[in-house]
């Protein structure tokens, strides 16, 4: 009755709400945890102590060099056709404007195609992208490449409609990347409302002028750490089931949803197994990644350090798409291993979270999956995820203790059973 015992303890028993309460203390105490910041350093120290205090084994930190970019004061004002304060958030790795700021006419486009067609008009202007939200993977390309594409046609700055499925005038930040052979221009995200308004004005033929001022500094890479803890396997200790989430976040909100929830249900999986006095045959390893938001920086260095043991990694699991009401798992692996995971998911019938979806998603586990290690990601109700993602709204208020209990139960049953089965999951 191990699956039942895990579910009972997580959802109804003494551990009920524990991952939520632990996360609340962490998020309220530490706050947002941008790569290279003192807050992230404090968050890692906090977790190192907390995991030791929890009685987990082999608690240690693995050094990583991470980007260090800091936001400065920033604001944007529409000067024409009327005075209007534009809510902005500079994008990660953006350069600053000159101290006096940039004042320029705006060109509004809905796509890269439109920008390229109107390239002659864009020279010397601020490009405003009013791209519709289709899906995160598709729409985020505007945030990632918007500045580069605008600079290629001679723009002086870019303002990008936030990659969000809903908005209450909230800008959402995130990483962007420059290209070596393209001039660097300042870039920030703006609210959906302001992007749409400027689009409407532009379609009416109204001239729009914006003054943009952004402070931002990029420092040399900083020392940071992936945080690791284990329950060492009883029979095959060298073999590993890896459960994970990332500790770093953006510098707005509290990073409670992205990815506090994922990190803390991963910790909870080890706590629940320990509380039940269980020790799986294989080692259950918790990794709390650093530098995920800048493109899985901590995870890549972890992969480089440990890839020589790839044959001993049974499965890599990451929760980084919210810890709302869970429905099952995304899974990447061979057909034979998928059949086994589907069978394992039947153990989650008591909480109605038995689905297995086509692929696992997770920046931090992608290196391993690319090389054939089975991967799993938590599937929960993602409907509201991009309302709060990378915004001031990513706080504990978004999290729900009951939903986190269910996520923790699912995460624990799956990771424990895979770690305890006699055979590793078969690979292609």
């Amino acid at each position: 009755n191990i699956a039942k015992a895990i579910i009972d303890l997580a959802v109804h028993g003494k551990a009920q709400n524990r991952s939520y309460e632990r996360l609340a203390v962490f998020a309220d105490t530490i706050g947002p945890r941008l790569s290279g910041s003192k807050n992230l350093e404090a968050g890692i120290k906090y977790m190192f102590n907390a995991l030791q205090k929890d009685g987990l084994e082999n608690v240690h930190l693995e050094p990583v060099k991470v980007p260090h970019w800091e936001r400065g004061e920033e604001f944007a004002v529409m000067l024409e056709p009327r005075n209007h304060s534009i809510a902005i958030l500079g994008l990660g790795s953006s350069i600053a404007t000159p101290p006096e700021g940039i004042t320029a006419e705006v060109i509004v486009v809905a796509s890269f195609d439109e920008l390229h067609k109107r390239a002659q008009e864009a020279k010397g202007k601020i490009v405003v992208y009013n791209e519709p939200f289709i899906s995160y993977g598709e729409t985020v390309q505007y945030r990632l490449q918007g500045a580069v594409e605008a600079a290629k046609v001679g723009a002086v700055a870019s303002l990008i409609r936030s990659v969000a499925s809903f908005s209450i005038h909230s800008p959402h930040t995130g990483e962007q990347s420059y290209q070596p052979d393209v001039p660097q221009i300042p870039t920030a995200c703006i609210s959906v409302e302001d992007a749409e308004m400027m689009s409407r004005m532009s379609l009416r033929g109204t001239k729009i002028v914006v003054h943009l001022r952004m402070g931002a500094k990029t420092y040399p890479d900083s020392l940071s750490f992936n945080t690791v803890a284990e329950i060492v396997g009883s029979k095959y200790p060298e073999q590993v089931v890896l459960v994970s989430g990332h500790l770093d976040s953006w510098d707005v909100g509290q990073g409670a949803m992205d990815d506090g929830g994922g990190a803390f249900i991963s910790w909870e999986a080890l706590s629940l197994i320990k509380d039940l006095g269980l020790r799986p045959k294989r080692t259950l390893r918790l990794v709390l990644w650093t530098g995920e938001e800048q493109g899985g920086v901590g995870a890549e260095q972890y992969y480089q350090l440990h890839k020589e043991n790839i044959s001993n990694f049974d499965i890599v699991m990451e929760s980084d798409e919210g810890t709302f009401k869970p429905s099952g798992l995304g899974f990447t692996g061979s057909a034979a291993s998928r059949d086994i995971v589907k069978e394992i998911m039947t153990l989650l019938q008591p909480i109605n979270a038995t689905d297995v979806y086509d692929t696992a998603d997770g920046t931090d586990i992608s290196y391993w999956m690319r090389d054939g290690v089975p991967g799993a990601s938590l599937h929960s109700d993602i409907n509201k995820y991009f309302w709060f993602h990378h915004s001031q709204g990513d706080t504990m208020t978004v999290q729900d203790p009951n939903q986190m209990n269910l996520c923790a139960a699912l995460w624990t049953v799956v990771s424990y059973v895979i770690a305890d089965m006699e055979d590793m999951l078969p690979r292609d």
Binding site: A3, S334, D339, I340, I344, D423, M424, R427
Partner: peptide
């Protein structure tokens, strides 16, 4: 090692199903 060199399982799927059912 519980994983063969070619990555295939030594057990039939029925065996694995029974093993998983043991965790119910």
């Amino acid at each position: 090692k519980s994983l063969r060199r070619d990555g295939s399982s030594l057990k039939s799927f029925e065996d694995i199903k029974n093993e998983i059912a043991g965790y119910t």
